[in-house]
């Protein structure tokens, strides 16, 4: 058993954890830090349910080991509070069962921050990283566009 004691910056808090080399970041934030917003789905980088933010970019936390995340700024769905994208998801009822929602929101939140002027093709490209088995795609797209509009400085 290869153990590492590392410091992770999660939601602006410094956390000390002891992890195995092969522990995914998803496992660590859920089971060690109790942040269960990021969801285990495919565990293979396909579905996006475990998406979090690392240094401002979306990241599938099943595709990252905890040891790789040392020194990075990690944000999980628990780190968001009344952001435009959260309000937009509620406003447009952009979910059914809700399992994929944290992943979509984290991806959408990153999109708004990194590409505030995203056009339709950029929105589509980013959203293709996540899967919604309830097929709420239309509502999700509306929510993202609503949040993008809301995010733009008023002229």
């Amino acid at each position: 058993m290869k153990l590492h004691t590392i410091h992770l910056n999660v939601n602006d808090e410094e956390q000390k954890v002891t992890v195995r080399s092969g522990d995914t970041l998803l496992y660590t934030i859920r089971e060690q830090l109790g942040l269960t917003g990021a969801k285990p789905g495919c565990l293979n980088g396909d579905c996006g349910a475990c998406t979090i933010q690392v240094d401002g970019w979306p990241m599938k936390s099943c595709l990252m080991m905890a040891v790789e995340a040392e020194g990075k700024q990690i944000t999980t769905i628990e780190g968001l509070n009344n952001t435009p994208i959260q309000e937009a998801f509620v406003h447009h009822f952009a979910f059914q069962c809700g399992y994929c929602t944290p992943g979509f929101i984290m991806n959408g939140h990153s999109l708004i921050q990194k590409k505030p002027d995203a056009d339709d093709s950029t929105i589509k490209e980013w959203l293709e990283s996540n899967i919604c088995r309830c097929t709420s795609y239309i509502e999700i797209e509306k929510a993202i566009k609503f949040a993008l509009g809301k995010n733009k400085p008023s002229s």
């Binding site: 290869k2 080399s21 092969g22 496992y27 285990p40 565990l43 099943c62 080991m65």
Partner: peptide
């Protein structure tokens, strides 16, 4: 559950 979210073997990790 644990097996499903971590690699099923132990290894040394180096970041040179």
């Amino acid at each position: 559950g644990r097996e499903s979210v971590m690699l099923p073997f132990g290894f040394d990790y180096y970041r040179p």
